[in-house]
Design a protein around this nucleic acid. Structure first.
Length: 297
DNA sequence: CGGGACTCCTGCCAGC
DNA sequence: TGCTGGCAGGAGTCCC
């Protein structure tokens, strides 16, 4: 579910309640999420100070003072809820819904509760349990099974048309699949790939390698790289309003509603000026792709 | 090896 | 209203 911008937003929210704080208690409601919790998970975190948080791809990393790093992944349906000492709740994540089952820490899908020294609780809720948590020594972080193969960050300095060209060279996979490949680019998911391809005017069905020549590449890769950055940056900025809601819970709840140009808009008119096409939904490697056949070639 | 199908799990919604 | 089938934003694993 959450892609890079949502994970970034959740990470920033967690930063405000975890950085510089000591976790005194970790409670597990079950022995696994997607994978089993590592041996001694709760005890190894209890008593530790959280030094800093960082996002890598769709993972959230919490560096602890004992030299270990807590690895969090939200999967498709993971979210956090902050419950302060007075019992006031604040949701972290796009899918937080106050009207839904309160994440008291005792709900059927409340799997992990982190309790701070002052009693504030951070509850992890995940109905589908595609999320995961792991705890590893900081030295082993880069070689960790889940992180070792991850590609570069699309908002980092190395990312650009030249990088895409090298990654796409010789690739027969469709653009859509190539962009979703986490070993090439870290953190892109189904929605933002659809949106970036639409903005760039590139068909999701086109073979990735078709944009790369022997000694040069199609200039539209520049456009693609630019739009990938733009769509992610805008989404993070929109998430930032969620973050303000986090600080001031009375803030406008609808302010973080994303507006997508093609995603989930099958049958609607293409939003590009003077296009006049109709958004189509197709299935690529088992996932929905939304695009405009008229302006995406 | 690259690429695609399958898989985990639950909630939700459209259609009957 | 209640049931059923299909679908969901991730990603590891298996197989060709």
């Amino acid at each position: 579910m959450p892609e890079l911008p949502e994970v970034e937003t959740v990470m920033r929210g967690l930063e405000t309640v975890l950085t510089g704080q000591r976790i005194t208690q970790v409670t597990l409601a079950r022995s696994n999420l997607r994978f089993p919790f590592p041996p001694g998970f709760a005890k190894r975190i209890e008593g530790r100070l959280v030094l800093r948080l960082q996002r890598r791809a769709k993972y959230i990393l919490a560096f602890l003072d004992g030299g270990e790093v807590l690895i969090l992944h939200l999967g498709m349906s993971g979210r956090f809820t902050i419950i302060d000492v007075r019992g006031r709740m604040t949701g972290l994540g796009e899918f937080y819904d106050e009207a839904a089952t309160p994440d008291s820490g005792k709900g059927p899908h409340d799997h992990v509760v982190f309790t701070r020294a002052d009693g504030l609780r951070i509850v992890y809720t995940d109905p589908r349990r595609f999320g995961l948590m792991d705890l590893v020594a900081e030295e082993g972080l880069l070689t960790h099974k889940l992180l070792a193969q991850i590609g570069i960050e699309p908002l980092g300095n190395e990312f650009g048309a030249a990088y895409l060209a090298e990654g796409f060279r010789g690739k027969k996979a469709p653009l859509k699949a190539a962009l979703l490949d986490q070993t090439l680019i870290a953190g892109l998911g189904n929605i933002y790939v659809c949106e970036a391809l639409h903005r760039a005017g590139l068909s999701p069905k086109r073979r990735a390698g078709s944009l790369v020549k022997k000694t040069s590449f199609d200039p539209r890769l520049e456009e693609l790289a630019r739009h990938i950055r733009a769509v992610l940056t805008e989404a993070i900025a929109a998430g930032g309003s969620t973050l303000r809601d986090f600080v001031h819970p009375q803030g406008d709840k609808g302010s973080f509603q994303q507006v997508f140009a093609v995603y989930d808009r099958e049958g609607e008119k293409c939003r590009k000026r003077r296009c006049g096409g109709t958004v189509k939904r197709i299935v690529q490697s088992g996932r929905s792709t939304f695009y405009c056949p008229k302006c995406q070639k």
